[in-house]
Write a protein that binds this DNA or RNA. Structure first.
Lengths: 207, 207
DNA sequence: CTGCAAAATTGAACGCACTCAACTTTTTTC
DNA sequence: GAAAAAAGTTGAGTGCGTTCAATTTTGCAG
C-alpha cells in the first residue's frame, strides 16, 4: 500500500506545513519568501507548488488546523452549555477567541481573512468560508439548544439570531487582529457589551 | 497662486484616478497592470507612484469616493428617518446597499476590503477603516434619534446596538461581494431577516 | 532673457510569487 | 534485473508591483 513514494510524499507535505507554521509565526507571512520556506523544508520552490497551489494556500492550511480545533471545543460546549443565555453565548465566543492566537499571529489571521475575501472562488477561499459557515452554524446550534431548554423565547428564529451573533463576533475579531495594540481582554469586553443586551432581549422573562 | 505646475499636478492626479475608475471597473482590479493605467493616464509608471503610494492606494481612493457619497445620503436619512424601528434601520441599510455597485464592481469591493484588512496601518487601510467607523457611527446616530422620538426603549445602549447592527450589515455585504451569484434582493432579504427581530426587541411596546 | 535651484517625470532594474521544460527517482512490466 | 512508464523534483525564466538615479520641466532672481 504505502510504498516509498507515498511515504516520501506525506513526509514532504508535513515538512512544508511545519516549516510554514514556524516561519510564518516567527517572521510574518509576508516577510517569508517561498525560497525560505522551500529551503527550510529541504525541497525546491517548484516542489512546494506540487503540494500547495499558492503561498496563500499554505497559510489557509495552517489556519484551518486552528479552526478545526476550535470547532471541536465549541461542539463540546454546545453539548452542555452553561446556564443563562448571555453566559452560554459568551462562553462559546470566548472559547473561540482565547485559542485564536495559540498557533497563529494576528498578521497571519489578517492575511488569511484578506485572502479568503479577495479570492473567494479559489480552494483557499472556499475552505476558509466553509469553516466560517461551520462556526456560524455552531452559534445557531447553541441557540437552538437554549431554546429547547426554555431559556430562549420560542418565537425567536435561531438561524437569524445565530448569524447576527456570529457576524458580530467575527467582525469584532477582525477589528482585534487589525489592531496590534488591542488586547484579548478588550475584545472580550467589547463583544460582551454587544452580546449581553441582545441576550437579555431574546431570553425568556425570569431574569 | 495656482501656477502651471499646480494645474498640471491636479490634472495628472485626476487623469490617473479617472483611468483607474474606468479600467478597474471594466477589466477588474487585478487584471489591470500599472502600465495600462499609466498609459491611459498619459504618464509613466513612475509618475503614478508620485501621486499614489501603491496600486491599492488608487483602489481605496476610488472606493472612498463612493463611501463618501453614501455617507451623505445616510446623513439626510438620519435627519428625518421613517417611522418604525425596523423601517428606519432597513431604509438606512438599503440606501447603503443600493448604491454600492454604482461606481464599483464586486471585485473592486473585495480587493478594497482585503487590502484594508491585510495592511491596516497603511494610509490605505486607515482611510478605509475610518470610513467604516463613520458608517457605524451613523447607525448609532439613527438609533439615538429613534430613542429620542420614543420609538426605541430608553434602557438600550445605542452604541452597542449600533455596532451590532453595523457589524451585521457589513458582514452580510461581505458575503454579497464574495458571491458573484448573489443578488441585491437576496442581500436585502437576508439582512431584513436578521435586523427585523432585533428591531422588534429594542422597540418600545406598542407595535 | 539667462542661468540656476527645486520639483516632477521617466523607464530600466529589482524582488518575489509563480510556471514549465528538462531531469531524476520510483514503480511496473516482462 | 533491465527497460519502459509514471510520478515527482528542480531551478532558471516570466510577469508585475515597486524603486530610484538620471533627465526634463517649471519657477524665479537678477
Amino acid at each position: 500500500m504505502a510504498g516509498l513514494r507515498d511515504r516520501q510524499k506525506a513526509d514532504r507535505e508535513k515538512r512544508i506545513l511545519s516549516a510554514a507554521v514556524t516561519l510564518f509565526k516567527a517572521r510574518g507571512y509576508h516577510a517569508v519568501r517561498l525560497e525560505d520556506l522551500a529551503d527550510r523544508a529541504d525541497v525546491s520552490v517548484g516542489t512546494v507548488y506540487n503540494y500547495y497551489r499558492t503561498k496563500g494556500d499554505i497559510l489557509i492550511a495552517t489556519v484551518a488546523l486552528e479552526v478545526e480545533e476550535v470547532l471541536g471545543m465549541g461542539r463540546r460546549l454546545v453539548a452542555d452549555p452553561p446556564h443563562g443565555v448571555a453566559e452560554a453565548l459568551l462562553a462559546l465566543i470566548y472559547s473561540y477567541y482565547d485559542h485564536s492566537l495559540e498557533y497563529l499571529s494576528k498578521e497571519m489571521w489578517r492575511s488569511a481573512m484578506a485572502l479568503s475575501i479577495d479570492a473567494p472562488e479559489t480552494p483557499n477561499g472556499l475552505r476558509y468560508s466553509a469553516l466560517d459557515r461551520k462556526l456560524a452554524a455552531q452559534v445557531t446550534d447553541l441557540i437552538v439548544r437554549l431554546q429547547a431548554r426554555g431559556e430562549v423565547r420560542p418565537e425567536i428564529d435561531p438561524a437569524a439570531i445565530g448569524q447576527l451573533v456570529f457576524n458580530n463576533l467575527n467582525m469584532m475579531f477582525l477589528e482585534f487582529v487589525k489592531d496590534d495594540a488591542m488586547t484579548l481582554a478588550q475584545l472580550r469586553a467589547a463583544v460582551a457589551d454587544q452580546t449581553r443586551p441582545l441576550a437579555r432581549l431574546i431570553a425568556t422573562e425570569q431574569s
